[in-house]
Amino acid sequence: MNTPPPSPPSSSTPPLSLSLSRLSINQETVKQLSLPELAEGCVKEGVTAVGLWRAPVQEYGVERTARLMRETGLAVTSLCRGGFLTGIEEAPRARALDDNRAAIDEAAALGTDTLVLVSGGLPPGSRDLAGARERVADALALLGPYAEERGVRLAVEPLHPMFAADRCVVSTLGQALDLAERFPAHQVGVVVDTYHVWWDDQAPAQIARAGRGGRLHAFQLADWITPLPAGVLLGRGQLGDGSIDFKALRAMVEAAGYDGPIEVEIFNEALWAREGAQVLRETARRFRTHA
């Protein structure tokens, strides 16, 4: 008798515990570590992948970083970040496009197929959210083919609405998908970051929508802790310290077809003040327990 295949997990059925083979340590989580220290720490802890950021990579050297990754056997799961594409004036828009092309080139040199994009906030004096989002779409139309030629996908990351004014006019997965779906899925997809979407009752439906379209390009974890610090940007918490049900969200992205790396990306001054290798070790332990 044929046995029917198992049903995909739902948000009410937490998935099994993860092995470290799925973990990617985002560089900002342990930004106190140099790139060689990060690579050494990952190898020591059995972590096989990292997400990198442009500024420290540029400081160390793109080709030098790529060589370090190859020599230590670390996969680069994403590069952060491109974006900031909401400018109105011609000269700033041209500069932003040039910078994003450079970011795409850097991603390709590092061997990652995913460049994370943060759209940018409202230009000074503007209150036109719809117009700002449309300018992001205009930029994606130019950048998508350029990225495709280099084997890189653009992953639009929606940020929590508290960042809409100054950092990201794309606030929900639905808005991110409305942009991405104008373009081929191999050019433009989305990032599901738990910190930014956990609150949204439409997130489950939008995660499923992203999966149907083949647009789940990255999955990132950070916890929501309160009270939020001044400026709010550095309020992302260590896994297990806050309010987010990571297992439920992972069940959703896996039911939608995502089986790729899971980045832990935390901006937190208290973590940065600690010894980096200790934070890396703790993050790996929390990942196995909470993700």
Rank of each mutant, 00 (worst) to 15 (best):
N26W: 01
A130L: 07
D245A: 10
E282V: 01
A91P: 00
S17W: 04
T112E: 06
L234K: 06
A255I: 12
D178F: 04
Y146V: 05
V116Y: 01
P9Y: 10
D201M: 04
L142C: 06
V190K: 07
L122S: 05
G82E: 02
V30M: 00
V170P: 00
T72L: 00
A176D: 03
D128Y: 12
R101A: 05
A66R: 05
A256I: 15
G111K: 10
L97A: 12
R281F: 02
L129T: 12
T114N: 11
D241G: 05
L159P: 02
L129V: 14
E157M: 15
A256Y: 15
F84Y: 15
R215E: 08
A205S: 14
E148A: 15
Y60G: 01
G237D: 03
A108C: 07
R150W: 07
T283Y: 09
N100M: 01
A141G: 15
A180D: 04
L74I: 03
T13K: 04
R135K: 09
T172V: 07
G214P: 02
L271T: 01
D113Q: 09
S171V: 10
P123C: 10
F246I: 10
G73Q: 09
P229M: 03
M162N: 03
A102G: 07
L280E: 00
Q278R: 12
